[in-house]
C-alpha cells in the first residue's frame, strides 16, 4: 500500500476524532444532531476509502448504510421529534464544557498511548486506525456519561458505534460482523426512537434523565 493511501486513511480517521470532540461542546440539541450527521458522513468516507484500499467491495455497503441511516434518517427523525414533542432545546451537561473537553483530550491521548504501545508489531494502518477508533469509542462513552438528556445520550451512543465501525473496517478481512453490527445499530436506533423516546415523552414532562434519577431515591 502506498503512502498516499495511508495519509488519506489517517486523515479521515483523525477527522472522525475531531468531530467527536466537536460533539462534546455543542450546547444546543439541533446543532448536536447536525454535527453527528457530519460525523456519519466522515465515517462513510472513511469506510469507503478502506473498501477501495483493501479491495473489499462489501464495505461499500457499510459505508452506504452509515451515510443513509446515520447521516440522514436518524438525524432527521430526531430533529422532527425534538420539534414535535417540544423537548428542551439545550443540551444539559453534568460537567461543564471546559472540563469535559479536557477529559476528552486526555482520553484521546490515553488511547493513542495504549494502542501504539500494544500493537508495536501490527501493520501501521491497522494500529493507527485502531488508536483513532478507540478515541472515538471513549469520547462517545464520555458524552453518554456527561449528558443529561436522553437524546444526547443516544447521540453519544451512536458516535461510540461509529468508533466501533471504524475499528472493524480497519481490521482487514474481518468477516460478516461489519454488516451485522451495522444492521444492529439500525435496530438499536429504531428501538430507541420508536419506543423509548416516544413513550418516555408520553409519561414524563421532559425526556431529561434527571427525572429518571428519582427512581433510586423513591425505591431504594
Amino acid at each position: 500500500m502506498d503512502k498516499f493511501a495511508f495519509d488519506i486513511a489517517h486523515f479521515l480517521a483523525g477527522s472522525l476524532v475531531l468531530v467527536s470532540l466537536m460533539l462534546l461542546y455543542q450546547d444546543r440539541l439541533s446543532a448536536l444532531l447536525n454535527v453527528f450527521a457530519f460525523q456519519a458522513v466522515v465515517l462513510a468516507l472513511s469506510v469507503s476509502w478502506q473498501a477501495y484500499v483493501q479491495g473489499a467491495p462489501h464495505l461499500y455497503l457499510t459505508a452506504a448504510i452509515a451515510l443513509i441511516v446515520k447521516a440522514i434518517v436518524i438525524p432527521v427523525a430526531l430533529h422532527r421529534m425534538i420539534r414535535r414533542l417540544g423537548i428542551h432545546r439545550e443540551v444539559e451537561t453534568a460537567l461543564n464544557v471546559g472540563t469535559t473537553m479536557l477529559a476528552g483530550l486526555a482520553l484521546v491521548a490515553l488511547s493513542i498511548v495504549v494502542v501504539l504501545r500494544v500493537t508495536a508489531d501490527a501493520g501501521t494502518l491497522a494500529r493507527e486506525d485502531l488508536a483513532f477508533a478507540l478515541s472515538v469509542v471513549l469520547l462517545g462513552l464520555l458524552m453518554m456519561v456527561t449528558r443529561r438528556n436522553a437524546v444526547s445520550q443516544v447521540v453519544g451512543f451512536m458516535s461510540l458505534e461509529n468508533g466501533l465501525i471504524l475499528a472493524a473496517t480497519g481490521a482487514k478481512g474481518m468477516p460478516f460482523v461489519v454488516e451485522i453490527s451495522v444492521a444492529f445499530s439500525v435496530l438499536v436506533a429504531f428501538i430507541v426512537i420508536g419506543i423509548f423516546l416516544f413513550r418516555i415523552r408520553e409519561r414524563f414532562d421532559t425526556v431529561d434523565l434527571q427525572a429518571l434519577d428519582d427512581l433510586r431515591e423513591r425505591r431504594g
Binding site: A150, F157, L160, E161, L164, A167, I191, V192, F196, L209
Partner: peptide, 19 residues
C-alpha cells in the same frame, strides 16, 4: 431505559474487544 443504555455500552465495549 437504564438497562438499555448500560447494556448497550457493555455490548459495545465487548465488540471492541472482539475486534
Amino acid at each position: 431505559w437504564k438497562y438499555f443504555i448500560l447494556g448497550s455500552v457493555g455490548i459495545a465495549l465487548a465488540l471492541f474487544g472482539t475486534i
